[in-house]
Computed example of a mutant assay.
Amino acid sequence: MSELRLILFDVDGTLVDSQGDIIASMTRAFEAEGLDAPTREAILGIVGLSLEVAMPKLAPGLDTPAHDRMVEAYKAAYMELRAAQGSQKSSPFYPYARDVLDQLAGIDHYLLGVATGKSRRGLDALLAGHGMTEMFLTQQVSDHHPSKPHPSMVLTALAETGVAPENAVIIGDTSFDMQMARAAGVRALGVGWGYHRPEDLDPHADAVIHDFRDLPAAIDRVWESER
């Protein structure tokens, strides 16, 4: 019998493309404080961090109460946009993502999970909107952990599933995901279609792929290289 393997996915920028709502929501959060919004590149550069960590990075000159108001304004705007469009339009899957997820979920010794900067409420809404509530055995969200790249999400997922670090891999689009994997002692696969430049992932990733259909073979290579 094969050993259990854990495949942990980041969400935004890895499984789904939610950049439209992310940028619009951040713009509204800044406008609520009478500020010009950061550039698209700056906003996407903090995706993956918890909002409480991301907001001071984008607006370093403000005090904590202002950052707290902006976090709440962002959340309210994001919920409004998602409710208006539905998850499948506001956060569509990247090409072939759902097919590959179904393929991986059909392998008996693979366990799927997520480790995301989303809140519990945000992740629940996304998964329900895509009909994926039961897809992921372990679901780690920002409500219960320090922000990435702290390894808490990964370590908790390993504990919940009973999988050893050498049998786990993180799939993500940001340097925060790759650094989190390294800190937790698990392997890291970067994806080149997300919000950080592929070259920023290379120093921390075991490999970077550019087509979702290449993921199963890349996962196999990562684990074969350990033996």
Results as ranks from 00 to 15, higher is better:
Tyr78Pro: 00
Ser50Lys: 09
Pro65His: 14
Ser87Gln: 06
Phe93Met: 07
Tyr94Gly: 11
Phe93Ile: 03
Asp63Gln: 15
Ala66Val: 10
Thr64Ala: 15
Glu80Tyr: 08
Val47Trp: 00
Pro92Leu: 08
Gly86Met: 11
Glu52Ser: 11
Val53Arg: 06
Tyr74Pro: 00
Ser50Val: 04
Val71Gly: 02
Val53Gly: 01
Gly61Lys: 10
Thr64Cys: 10
Lys89Trp: 04
Glu80Trp: 07
Val71Phe: 00
Pro56His: 12
Met70Ala: 07
Ser90Val: 05
Gln85Asn: 15
Glu52His: 13
Tyr94Thr: 10
Pro60Asn: 11
Pro65Trp: 10
Gly48Ile: 03
Pro60Ser: 09
Gly61Pro: 00
Met70Trp: 00
Pro60Tyr: 12
Met70Leu: 07
Tyr94Cys: 10
Ser91Phe: 00
Leu62His: 08
Phe93Asn: 02
Met70Ser: 04
Ser87Phe: 03
Lys89Pro: 10
Glu72Ala: 15
Ala77Ser: 13
Tyr74Ile: 01
Pro92Tyr: 07
Gly86Pro: 06
Pro60Ile: 11
Asp68Glu: 15
Gln85Ser: 13
Val71Arg: 07
Ala77Glu: 09
Met55Glu: 09
Gln88Gly: 11
Glu72Gly: 06
Arg82Glu: 10
Arg82Trp: 03
Met55Arg: 05
Lys57Ser: 06
Ala83Gln: 14
Glu80Pro: 03
Ala73Leu: 03
Leu62Met: 12
Gly48Ser: 04
Ala59Lys: 09
Glu72Lys: 14
Val53Met: 05
Ser87Ala: 14
Ala54Gly: 05
Glu80Lys: 11
Ala73Ser: 12
